[in-house]
Structures are given as structure tokens and as C-alpha cells.
Design a protein around this nucleic acid. Structure first.
Lengths: 125, 125
DNA sequence: ATTAGTTACTTCAATATCGCAAGTAAGTGG
DNA sequence: CCACTTACTTGCGATATTGAAGTAACTAAT
């Protein structure tokens, strides 16, 4: 039982999904992780320029919700990378549908590479 | 060109979609409209209990972004209903993917009726 | 003709959240 | 020892959200 369970808005699966990733930044972070970004600095350097405190907080939340793991990949200096779990990777179809909607309805949006739009959750970085 | 264009975070179709419906309430309202709710009071009475000022504001925004139309369906007293446009209806695949994710990954979420999960955007109320 | 009720909002004060800038800690390389 | 990088954390003013109450238009009952 996660912290959110104390304040459930309802049992609706859409609402419960949104209570994890239905904010301004979380799906952007998941997009970047699926696109191969791994470190804090890589994530912070996206064109949308997420504030660093917000990035740190969202990463902690995503780890607490098991959408990603924080893994040390180097000692001296200790360096960490953020790796999606299956639960995190399985947000890909949501991202793909939002991307399709954006391309169809918001003019001037760039078209994601085909590998992104065609990928299955299991094949993602 | 909509108001948001002045403050574009990037050209990413995901980000631009989220800048319309990536908040706590908008997709909940779209869910309800797709499920056949039409009036302000019907929308306000959902189990998630959206504050009425937030509901009014989101409806105005969705109208401004052409996801829905506010239609008078009765004079004396004047009564309005909110009707999805094709642009609004086409968020259905996003809602379906979020619902699938919620059912797969958040325990205790209810399973939406089959007509909702199987529907095509064109067939929706 | 009052009075109560309904619908569809709007307003307001309190609280929560956000974004920006700056600061910190650990470590490297010169 | 000093500058530099990575990975955050802290402080704080600005902004957004909430819950409660208020308003406006109209209907229906007494």
C-alpha cells in the first residue's frame, strides 16, 4: 500500500494512473528514460528544462512507486543511473497515444522517431 | 495559435498534449464526457468530487482548445450541455491506455465496462 | 407573492505546490 | 590548493488549488 492510498480519489484506474503520472513533469521524465537518458544531468538537460528540485522529487516518487530503480554504476566517484522497471516501461503505450494525439491536434509538434512510436514496452531501454 | 503557444515548453507532441490535459482533473472530465455525462452538475457529481471552480475553469479551457462545445439545449431556463468535438473524442485511446495501465499496476482499481475499453473515438457520446 | 429548491457557476481566504536561484557535498584533474 | 563536475538540497516569492460560501437566474409549491 503506497502513500497515495490514504487519499484515494476513487477506484477508477484512470484516476489512479493520473495520481502517479498526471502532472506537468512525470511523463516527460518517463519519455526521456524510455528514450535512453539515464543520469540526473541528462534528464535535467531536456529542452523543457525541468527545475532540479522537481526532478529530484519526481525521481524519488517514481522509485517509491516502483516505476524505476536507482542503480549505482560506478564507485569513486559514486554515480547513479535511473533504470525503468517493467512497470515504468509499460507507460510507453500511453506516451505513444499522447504523442499521436499531439501530432494530430497540435500544429508544429515534431514527429517522434519511428522506433519510439512502434516500440513495445519490453524492447525499451 | 492558442494562448499556450506563448509559453511552449518544447515542440514535443507529448509535452504539448500534457500542456492541455496533463493535470489532475482534465482527463477525468474527458472520461466523464465520453461516458455520457453532459451537464455541469453531472460532471460535478463524479466520485472524485472536482471543486466546482476548477470544473468551470477546465471546461472553459477545453472549449477554448476546441475539445468540446458548450451548447444550449433549452431556453427558459437556459440550460447548457457540454459536447465533445472530434478532437475531444480522440483522447479516448489515451484514456484506454491509462485505464489498462491502472488495472495492471494499481491494485484495487475497478475494470471499466467493455464498451469503454473497446470503443473507437468516433463511436463515443 | 413569498419561499424553497435547482442549476450553474463565481468569489474568497487558506493552503499547497511550483519555479528560480543559490548553496552544498563528494569527488576529480591540474 | 583551486577550479570544475555531478547530483542534488534549501529558501522563498509567485502561482495554483481547495473548500466553503455566495450569487444569479429561473421554477414550482404554498
Amino acid at each position: 500500500m503506497s502513500d497515495r492510498d490514504q487519499f484515494l480519489r476513487s477506484g477508477c484506474p484512470i484516476v489512479n494512473g493520473l495520481d502517479i503520472f498526471g502532472d506537468k513533469w512525470t511523463l516527460v521524465i518517463l519519455r526521456d528514460l524510455i528514450c535512453g537518458k539515464q543520469t540526473y544531468t541528462e534528464l535535467a538537460s531536456s529542452p523543457e528544462k525541468i527545475p532540479t528540485n522537481r526532478l529530484a522529487e519526481r525521481l524519488k516518487m517514481l522509485e517509491a512507486e516502483n516505476l524505476l530503480l536507482k542503480e549505482q554504476y560506478q564507485t569513486r566517484p559514486k554515480r547513479y543511473k535511473y533504470v525503468l522497471t517493467a512497470k515504468g516501461k509499460s507507460t510507453l503505450p500511453i506516451l505513444q497515444e499522447i504523442a499521436k494525439w499531439g501530432n494530430n491536434h497540435v500544429q508544429g509538434t515534431w514527429v517522434p522517431p519511428e522506433w519510439f512510436m512502434q516500440a513495445q514496452p519490453s524492447e525499451t531501454a
